[in-house]
């Protein structure tokens, strides 16, 4: 059990000042101070994910702090072309979080924003550019942080479900997150993971895209929901609230009883609550009038 070889953070405070994270032969010698950026969608829609993230980070040996001054990572402004607002928000985030050893976000797209885009917001050679670059390197998506930095294995958890996993595009392509959540899920007892067809295809959320082009977004999420249903899985997991809200909304409108959770909820064993977009934990109520609205799956004819 990895948790048993963790050295108590209290006994190692003397290392903290200079050392970010010292790992020797898999033994973590110092507890990194992690600033948790819960992200706006978790803050609003799914507090459980925030608590699950804290639990997992602590289990992995981190000291977790949730700064009060956090709001949003700035993606809505960035992706709408409002560079000035994005800069102000990015500066705010950097100021709030740069004192931590690491910044962890339970979202690939927000982590991608901090990691891959903050530096480009500021003029080359400016002080903020340097600060942003130094900051970006320490920003991680939750699953990637747990696996790649903390070499974490979840505590024994039972989840006897057939699940499928949706890779959020930003996490997948900006941060290369694909293996990490699967590796973590692998240590959950009883779980069986079935991959969906076209799993690398976007669900149609796209942040402001789903607001500006709802009809196109709806077609895309319809295709995605059909792929989820086709796996026969009774649970859909993912690492990004945006995608999960979108897909769960389509599944429930179509009367499908697939439950939707953030992967952290399962890994932390905090799944007593109802799934995303449902109230009672038994899946969503079928909306009879919409039950056939999912597109039929076409046989491929290559």
């Amino acid at each position: 059990m990895p948790n048993e070889i963790l050295v108590s953070p209290d006994s190692l405070t003397q290392y903290k000042a200079s050392v970010t994270l010292v790992s020797f032969g898999g033994i973590i010698l110092s507890a990194p101070r992690v600033g948790l950026f819960v992200t706006c969608l978790v803050d609003l829609y799914r507090p459980n994910v925030g608590f699950a993230a804290i639990k997992l980070l602590e289990q992995s040996g981190c000291e977790v702090i949730v700064p009060e001054a956090q709001t949003c990572c700035g993606q809505p402004a960035f992706n709408s072309g409002d560079r000035a607002s994005t800069q102000i928000i990015a500066q705010q985030v950097i100021e709030t979080f740069e004192s931590f050893d690491y910044v962890v976000l339970p979202s690939g797209s927000c982590a991608g924003m901090l990691h891959a885009h903050y530096a480009e917001l500021f003029a080359v050679d400016s002080d903020w550019r340097k600060r942003a670059e130094a900051f970006s390197h320490r920003c991680y998506e939750l699953n990637a942080f747990l696996v790649d930095v903390m070499h974490f294995q979840p505590e024994t958890i039972q989840f006897k479900r057939k699940v499928t996993y949706h890779d959020a595009c930003s996490g997948l392509r900006e941060l290369g997150i694909e293996a990490q959540p699967r590796q973590l899920l692998d240590s959950v007892n009883g779980i069986s993971l079935v991959e969906m067809d076209e799993k690398e295809v976007c669900c149609g959320f796209g942040g402001t895209f789903c607001v500006k082009y709802p009809d196109i977004s709806d077609r895309m999420v319809g295709d995605k929901a059909a792929m989820v249903v086709q796996t026969g899985a009774d649970v859909l997991l993912g690492g990004d609230m945006g995608c999960l809200l979108n897909i769960s909304g389509k599944l429930s409108r179509s009367g499908k009883t697939v439950r939707v959770y953030h992967v952290a909820e399962v890994l932390a064993g905090q799944i007593e609550d109802a799934g995303i977009g449902s109230a009672d934990g038994s899946g969503s109520e079928p909306a009879i009038d919409d039950i056939d609205s999912l597109p039929e799956r076409k046989e491929s004819n290559t």
């Binding site: 609003l44 709802p214 977004s217």
Partner: peptide, 17 residues
């Protein structure tokens, strides 16, 4: 959004923060 899909409501009446 709600033309083709439901809008999930927040898990709790309070934010995570």
């Amino acid at each position: 959004w709600t033309k083709g899909r439901n809008l999930p409501v927040p898990q709790h009446a309070q934010t995570f923060m």
